[in-house]
Structures are given as structure tokens and as C-alpha cells.
Design a protein around this nucleic acid. Structure first.
Lengths: 222, 222, 222, 222
DNA sequence: CATGAATGAGACTTCATTCAT
DNA sequence: AATGAATGAAGTCTCATTCAT
């Protein structure tokens, strides 16, 4: 391959770690950590096997780097999105979740959930990190919104923790599905992710909200 | 090991395949297929490495047998439970799902979801089987119930497929969680599975049902 | 299997060792010693794997028994045939070799040469036995005949040892061929063993070259 | 091992396949394919077990490569030698065969016959190759010479195919012997290969029997 | 005697990791 | 920095041999 750009090599060199992380992410999600060979990762990143070891001391460290990077990026994005929305609590929740998850679902990062679920028992450090940095934070954000909605009378007094799970679990499952069964069904009728995200949140929200207060006209009579 | 029973060998022989399947199930769920060594499976089943190969021609066949067996048993149980319940549609749905999933969640079979999600891309035959025998059937049963509830006016006219997913995905995630993150958090506050199952279904049901129109007259009396 | 004949079991029992030897002979010749599994031998002999070990202490002993039995039988037959023939030396040689080898070539014992050649380096005891009991004796018998023919003026004064080899080697090769390449050529034109035996002996007796034509005119002048 | 040469690695790398083929050849001939362990081959070639698999995808492929390489080299040499000789047909035959086989007998390639005979039934592709590339060609060359000798009146009108076998089989057996029984007889009187090659060809050319006793002059007198 | 389930040493093969170039 | 040949520990699977029934 001829390379005209004099900066190319330099640029590529700087990009190496990220290219390796991307390749590893894709392959670990597709085949699992143990079933992915380091040569495959190197090949997909366009470098030789030895080069991988210049940037990551071992396959296991590569896994940890992949997960850490994905999660910290996802957390940053989520926090940014959370700050953007306002309006009544239901609209806030809807807007926030739909935006966040649509974006996540479309990105390669959707695979990180499969990776965590698959590998967390073999690498307990991942569990700590994920629980602390992702699960706890997401729950805190969403729990706060829900509690606010309940306090303001918009939402029924549901158990908050369970409701957070009822909201989030299907969104996570959607990502899992995309990278497991969904990736195997060529041609068969499958889930439309974007549509489902909205339908799911609508469904749960309509269950959360107090029933519309039709009595108003009646009250007039009082 | 002393063995008084003269039929020990025979009795053990008959039980071997199941013992191996159980051991394999537990280990595949815990560590993943690729990361589980065949000797570990044999050891946990209380036999030698070679014995495993008397009953299963390869590690891969063992995996397929584990999944096929679990799924067919779960399907049979689900079908049996579906036949038991009656009452109004909401009660039917609640009773059916709570019973079914509580039982499933408590059994070792809860791990089969992790197994399928993890390995389905490496073993496409599993995808076919799972999609056809499990996903399609479960959707058919639940979809029928939902449609009946909508037709009878008990439920709002929600998109049925999405609603089925909104109902089931959190239940599946609960099982995934039990065998991934949940298994790593020793002492930390975790999800109470039985409680969540009920809370989740309550939440989704209250969203499915038409809001009660009666409150107005009652208030009038005030 | 129902067994009417009350003596059958007894008879079979007595025949077991021979049935095992025959099965082992056939399989060792076909696939080689190392590539033959003991279960195959047992299966072909119609007994269980364990039974084999009632009659032979190990696979290696089975091999030695196979070779020893075949060779001693072949030697006995050869000696018997050698005693039968007479006439002039060429006719004796021709008759003896044709009879002997035609019979050998048709019998399963033809495989013993392949077995010896294949395994002799792994089992040096076989070498001793074969060299002493087969090679040496056969050479002695044939060498004696040749020497007698030379002494009587029937044969040219050829080097006896080499001539014995020139006579015998093709006959042995014929047997090797039958159980190696010859067994793989389905339909292709192959060697007619019986024909070749006769043609080969004729050729060696008479030679390729036309006898020198010069002496005749010289005699005329006498 | 100290290695001054800076290009050692590269040089060795280029030589690896041949070193492995040589080691495999020697061991397969000595012990048989099934009884040779891959680590032995690697050890004899001076590399580790894993290195073998950089050059040959499996033990079986190694065997096929060994045989193919030996045979194609032997064929090339034979063809070259066939072109060199001339003179009357008997001298041609004698010179050609003696040169060819003396060289072959001294080379490690002499073992290839044992290898083919031993393994051909387990690997039928070898049979095709050997039959087509070696047997057929050699027969064609020798058959042509014999037929020419017969047509020119130098040779008696013998059956050509059989005569080719009578000529070649002992030469092949000589090679088999060298690597089977011959390799086991330390000190015992054994065959002198070079001598036998000449003696055998002489014998077949001239025959054992004294030429028929010139009846021609005698008859005339009648 | 006969069986065949069970064993475990040992074979082939893979692959994460190293290191001379 | 990058390469890729080499390594060898570790994994899957086989099979000769044993032994309770």
C-alpha cells in the first residue's frame, strides 16, 4: 500500500490503541472473550500480533480497557443528555431515555452490555467498576426523576427501584438482543429497536402517571 | 467411596447424562462455554474426563444438549402453567407470569438465558431452535392474552408485540442479572427477584388497563 | 442372541483365541498396529473389549501372537510342500515355488509380510524370530536347490544368495502389494497374482536375453 | 546454541519446512506414522512442537507432504537418468537401473516405499498419487525399453508387464528390507545392497538356466 | 467366563506471549 | 515502533487397560 500522506503513519500510530480497542470490542462482543484470538484482534486492527502487546500488556488487560473505555464514554454521554432535558417529569423522562438509548442502541457501544454480562463473573474487577460507575449512577439519576414525579403528584407512588428496572431492563435487553439472537436472524421478522424504545417508554409511562383527572367538569357542579 | 448398594453402578450409569448436563449447565453459565474446561465438568459431575465422552461426543454437543434440554423442559412447564390460570385477563396475566417466572428464577434453568445470549452467535443452530421453540411460542401465548384483554376492553389498545417485550424483557434480564452481576455482589444491596417480578408486572399492568372512570361519582358524594 | 446348539457356547469359547487372532491379523494388516483399536479387534471377533484381555495380556502380546502363529503355520506348510516335489531341478523349483506361493497369496496369511515389515522395528523380538525361523530357513531350502542345480550343470553358476532374493523378493512384494496399493485400486488395472507368480519364475529361470547365437556355426564345422 | 550469523533466524526459517520434512520422513519410516509423536518430529528438527504447526496444518498433512516431496524428487531423478544412457538395450537397462537404484538405495528416500506400503490404506489420496505419478510412469519407461529389446530381437518375447515387476520388485524389496528387518540386524550377515542390485539385474537379464543345449546342429544330422 | 462402564495417561492441536530482527 | 517466527503451557479428545457386576 502506497501512502502519499506524510502524516499518515504518524496519525495511524496515534490511532493504534483506539483501533485495537475497537477491533477488540467488536470481536469480544461477537464471539466472547475466551473465543476471540489475539491474532484476530490484531488482524482486524490492521497490525501484527506483536504490536498489540506494545499497547496492552495482556489479553485480559485489553478486555478491561475495552470495557472501561466504553463505559466511561457512555456515562459521560448519559450525563450530558440528562442535563439537556426539561419540561414536566414524564416528558423529561421520555425525552431523556429515548434520546439516550436510541443513540446508544445505534452505536457499537450497545455491545458492552453483552460483554459485561458475559465476562463479569470471570473478571470481578469489572463487576466493581460497572456496579459503581454505571449501575449506581444510572439508578441515581433515574430514581431522582421518578421520585420527583411521584412527589409532584405526576406519577403514582410506585416502588422506585423496581420501576427503574422496569424502565431500563428492556432497553438493555434490546441491546443484548441486537448482538445475540438479533444478529443471527437473517431475514426473519425482528425487533425494530427505535420503535420499541418509544413504545416501551410510552407503555411504562402511561402506567406510572396518575389517571387523567376527568372529574374536573363534575367538580364544577360542586 | 464405599458403595453398599449392589446396583450402584447401574444406578449411577442411568443418572450420568443428567449429572453431566447439570454440571455443564452450571459451569457454562458461570464461566462461559469457551472458558470451561471439560475436566471441570467431569469433576463436578463426579466422573473422570473420559467418562464425559462416553455420553457426549464433544464439548460442543454437550453445550447443545444442555440448552436443548433446559429449553424443552422450560417450554413444557410454561405450557402447563398457562393452562392452569383463569379469571379476568389482568389476573390471568399476573398469576401466570408471576408463577411461571418465580419458579424459573429459582431454578438453575434461569441460567439458560445467559447461555443462549452468550453462545448463540458461535452456534447458529442454537439460534434456530431458540427462536422457533421458545421466542415464537412465548410470544404467541402472551400476545394472545394481551389481544384478548384489548378486545374485551380491559386493556388499552397498546402495540401488542412491544408490550410483550416490555413484559418479558425485564423478567429475562432478572435471570441474566442473577447469573452475572448479581452473582458478583457479595453483601451489596441487590435485587429481590421475587419482589421485583410482582412489582414489575403490577407496574406494566396498571399501564395496560384502562384508567378507572368511576372516581368522579364517588367524589361527588364528598 | 438365542443359541439352540448346546455345544455352541463351548465351541465358540474354544474358538475365541483363534477368532481374536484372525480379527487382529486382518485389522493390523489393513490399518497397522498402532492405528488399530482394541475395540475394533474385539468387535470383529464378536466379543467384548474386556474378553480380549482374558486371552491376551496386552495389545502388544496380541500382535506377537498373531505374527508367531502365522509364521509358524507358513513354515510348516512350506516345509511340507518342499518335500513333495521332484523331477529336474528347474521343474522342482518351479513346482515348489508356484504351489507354495499361490496358496500363500490366496490366504489371509499373505498379510503377514506387511505386518512384519511395518512393525519389526518397533518390536525387535519379532525381528529375531522372523530372521531365524523364516528368512534363514527359506534361504536354506532354496539355496540348497539352487546349489544342486548349479552343481548338476542345470543352472548357470550364479551367486546363490542373490538369486534366492531375486526369486523370492517379487513373490513377497506381490503379497505386500495385495495388502497395500492393490487394496486401494478399485477398478483400475491391477496385477493378476497367480499369473505373475508363474511368469516371474519362468522369467528368472530363463532370463530376458536371447541365448548367444554364435556357437551353432562353430559346431557345424565340426 | 550460539549463533553468530545475524541472519540466522531468517536462514533457519527458510530451511524449516525441509528440516521438518526430513525429520518426519526418518521417523515415519522408522516407527510408522501412527506411532510417531509430533513432538518427536519437532525435536528431531530442532524446533518446538508448536513450530511444526506453523508449517504444516496437521500431522496428516505432514505425512502427505513427506511422501509427495520424496516421490516427485525421485521421479525427476529417474527421468533424468533414463535420458542419459544408451548402447544396446541390455546395457541400457543395466546401466539405467543400476545407477538409479544404487543412488536411491543410498538416499533416505529409500524409506518412502515402506511409508507408502504402510500408510496407503489409511490415506487413499496417497494411493492415487503414487499409482499415477510413480507406478504408472516407471512402468511406462521400463516397459518401453523392454518392448524395444524384444522388437529388436535382443530379448526373448517375454510378457512385458510381468518382466517389469520381476525387475523392479526386488529393488523395491531391497529398500523395504533396509528400513525394516535390515535395520534390526546388528552384526548379523545381511544383504549388500549395491552388490545385489547388480547381481539381480544380471540374473534377470541372463536367467538361471543354462541356455538350451543347441539341438539345431544335432537335428540337421538327423 | 463375559461384559462394558470407567479410568487417566498421553496424543494432537491451539494460542497467548515473547523477542530477535 | 513494528514485525512475525518461535515457544510451550494448556486444552480437547482417544484409547489401552481395569474391574465390579
Amino acid at each position: 500500500m502506497i501512502d502519499i500522506d506524510p502524516h499518515h503513519r504518524r496519525r495511524r500510530k496515534d490511532a493504534r490503541p483506539q483501533e485495537l480497542l475497537d477491533a477488540a470490542m467488536a470481536l469480544f462482543v461477537e464471539k466472547g472473550f475466551a473465543a476471540t484470538r489475539t491474532d484476530e484482534v490484531a488482524l482486524r486492527a490492521g497490525v501484527s500480533k506483536g504490536t498489540l502487546y506494545l499497547y496492552f500488556p495482556s489479553k485480559e488487560d485489553l478486555l478491561k480497557a475495552v470495557i472501561a473505555q466504553q463505559l466511561s464514554e457512555r456515562i459521560a454521554e448519559g450525563a450530558a443528555l440528562a442535563a439537556v432535558h426539561d419540561g414536566d417529569t414524564a416528558a423529561l423522562l421520555r425525552g431523556m431515555l429515548v434520546d439516550w438509548w436510541t443513540q446508544l442502541y445505534d452505536s457499537p457501544a450497545a455491545g458492552v452490555f453483552k460483554l459485561v454480562i458475559t465476562e463479569v463473573r470471570n473478571f470481578p474487577e469489572i463487576a466493581d467498576y460497572y456496579q459503581r460507575e454505571v449501575v449506581a449512577r444510572a439508578h441515581e439519576v433515574l430514581g431522582k426523576v421518578l421520585r420527583h414525579g411521584i412527589d409532584s403528584g405526576e406519577f403514582r407512588p410506585v416502588p422506585v427501584d423496581a420501576a427503574v428496572h422496569s424502565l431500563l431492563f428492556p432497553l438493555i435487553m434490546l441491546c443484548l438482543h441486537k448482538h445475540s439472537l438479533g444478529a443471527c436472524m437473517h431475514g426473519a421478522p425482528d425487533i425494530d429497536g427505535h420503535l420499541f424504545i418509544r413504545q416501551h417508554i410510552d407503555l411504562v409511562l402511561d402506567g406510572l402517571c396518575q389517571p387523567p383527572v376527568r372529574p374536573a367538569p363534575l367538580r364544577r357542579k360542586i
